[in-house]
């Protein structure tokens, strides 16, 4: 039972819930009588799709898609460079602790490592893509949310127009009134 739970339910739980939310939203859009309820169902449907996209971009053990602050990046670059490593070992008796350099030492090690690019950019130091969450779905969904609220606004404006015409937001009553006006 526990094995089944951990191999089938937990790894796919986001996807199961995305299916459930999509069904809830779709059911509300089809069967609810009130137009505002239909719109809430539409918003739930929309968030289900966004949930699907964002869940696809998750990587296990990855951090948020923002680079570390610059001086961390530098010390990381030094750690990979042999010259800087040598320098660090030489001066380790003066340092606060292993791996922690004072500012002057860091600057010197930086120069010795031959890193002369502006802004302290670690040239040739490739970022491991597994370290960061996939940013592409985030970008797509960020704009989708804001556009979604703008279109929700349009739908609500149309609802107000319908309410002035028919005096109700119930779909069945609106349909009866339309039928009566067609016969009359």
């Amino acid at each position: 039972m526990r094995e089944f739970f951990e191999s089938y339910i937990v790894p796919y739980f986001n996807f199961w819930v995305y299916v459930i939310l999509m069904m809830i939203g779709m059911f509300a859009m089809i069967t609810k009588n009130n137009l505002i309820k239909k719109l809430i169902g539409m918003s739930i449907f929309q968030t289900a799709i966004i949930l699907f996209y964002v869940s696809l971009g998750v990587k296990d053990g990855a951090t948020i898609p923002i680079y570390f602050h610059e001086h961390k990046e530098e010390s990381h670059a030094e750690g990979t460079s042999e010259d800087a490593h040598h320098k660090e070992e030489e001066s380790s008796h003066e340092s606060v602790g292993p791996g922690i350099l004072t500012d002057a030492e860091r600057k010197q090690a930086h120069l010795e490592a031959g890193d002369h690019t502006p802004h302290g950019e670690a040239a040739g130091h490739a970022v491991n893509p597994d370290e960061f969450t996939n940013p592409l779905p985030h970008v797509l969904m960020l704009t989708a949310i804001v556009v979604g609220v703008a279109t929700l606004g349009v739908a609500l404006a149309v609802c107000q127009l319908i309410y002035r015409e028919f005096g109700t937001l119930e779909e069945s009553e609106i349909l009866t009134q339309i039928k009566q006006s067609n016969h009359g």
Binding site: P11, N14, V58, E121, V127, N134, P135
Partner: peptide, 24 residues
């Protein structure tokens, strides 16, 4: 699988390019 870094969506060329080259 949930959180797989090598799934087609995550290991795609475009998002890998964005992660590696945005800084430079």
């Amino acid at each position: 699988k949930w959180g797989d870094p090598h799934s087609p969506a995550n290991a795609g060329e475009v998002s890998t390019y964005f992660i590696q080259n945005t800084k430079a």
